[in-house]
């Protein structure tokens, strides 16, 4: 099993007190203080780390907006650590302007994505699952580091995420058949209700499940033709940022999914208040009820559809709830006569 975080090989951590406060923006010199080097990053195969004959190439994690990979326009980053507090990467700390750009990109992508045939969306989303599968090892390592899971469990989460993505991909051309209706009205009218995507959906990904949780909240949103602005799990954004790279290589048009990393509280506010966002999934604000309430209030300004936080077991079976939550029902009438 490659990609396993080599905790045992790491030097003993100095004292806890020396650990940088979680989430603080720190200087890279911290690495030396904690004795960590890039060798320990989960995306490096073990051999590389043990041979030490060559220095690994680091990957710079970037935002994913409109199909491109910008750094935050603010130039800010924050340190991402594993559950033990060890440095993993400097993730972009997106600003409200990045959030705004992401909404613009999502809005721009909406007509084409929502206008694509459901079959086409299903094909593209299935392609995402294929790409995810191909990067299984990388994601397993990232998830293990992010969530402090044993390697087998982390891999199982990645597998579940792939399977969940496949499940939702298959829904794209079926949801109208379970959520739509032919309505038998009392008159000479053809009357059909069909579900349509709500529009641009802001998604606050759950902090506790960096990939499976993310997939569980993102895939249902876009499967039906919405476009999304995702705020990655604040403490564990790396799988989300990597997912951006998967999406970019999976025929998903730019802007359909936009991934932001940073402070959930900082990004969620502007998204909840944004007049061109149609719906918001507050799952990521779940641990902070006061924040969730403020966001729901802000969302009222343009009557966003709000998916409230609730207790979730991401490993449990999937349901259509999230798929159906970001749909509008359009009912079309036409007379029948000669």
């Amino acid at each position: 099993m490659s990609g396993k975080p080599q905790k045992a090989q790491k030097p003993q951590k100095p004292q806890k007190s020396q650990k940088p406060p979680k989430g603080s923006t720190q200087d890279r010199h911290d690495e030396q203080q904690t004795g960590r080097t890039g060798q320990d990053r989960p995306d490096r195969p073990r051999e590389e780390r043990t041979t030490a004959v060559r220095l690994n190439v680091f990957r710079t994690y970037k935002l994913f907006i409109g199909g491109a990979f910008p750094r935050s326009e603010s130039g800010r980053v924050y340190q991402v650590t594993d559950t033990a507090g060890d440095w993993l990467a400097n993730a972009p700390r997106a600003s409200r302007k990045d959030a705004r750009d992401a909404v613009v990109a999502a809005r721009k992508a909406f007509p084409r994505w929502s206008g694509a045939t459901a079959y086409n969306r299903g094909q593209i989303l299935y392609r995402v699952a294929e790409m995810l599968q191909g990067r299984r090892e990388q994601f397993a390592a990232e998830v293990a580091a992010a969530e402090g899971l044993p390697p087998g469990t982390a891999a199982a989460r990645v597998d579940a995420a792939v399977d969940r993505w496949v499940w939702y991909a298959g829904w794209s051309d079926k949801v109208a058949q379970i959520a739509g209706a032919a309505n038998p009205v009392a008159g000479p009218y053809f009357n059909l209700s069909t579900p349509e995507p709500t529009g641009v959906v802001a998604v606050l990904a759950p902090p506790e499940s960096s990939l499976l949780g993310l997939v569980s909240v993102l895939a249902p949103v876009i499967a039906t033709g919405n476009t999304a602005v995702v705020v990655a799990a604040e403490p564990a954004p790396l799988p989300a940022l990597s997912l951006g790279e998967v999406l970019a290589t999976s025929d998903v048009p730019g802007g359909v999914v936009n991934v932001l990393s940073g402070r959930t509280a900082e990004l969620a506010g502007p998204l909840a208040a944004h007049q061109d966002v149609n719906a918001i999934d507050l799952t990521g604000a779940g641990p902070d009820p006061a924040l969730a309430r403020e966001l729901e209030k802000a969302a009222a300004e343009n009557l966003k559809r709000v998916f409230r936080p609730r207790a979730e077991d991401w490993t449990a079976g999937q349901s259509t709830d999230r798929l159906l939550a970001f749909l509008e029902t359009k009912t079309v009438w036409h007379p029948m006569g000669v």
Partner: peptide, 25 residues
């Protein structure tokens, strides 16, 4: 939420009614 083609203001209990965006949910 409701599109009437070649008719307007038809209502029926079997027909869902409601809006997009600021027309409610």
């Amino acid at each position: 939420g409701v599109v009437w083609a070649n008719t307007f203001n038809r209502f029926d209990p079997a027909s869902p009614f409601g809006g997009y965006q600021e027309s409610g949910f």
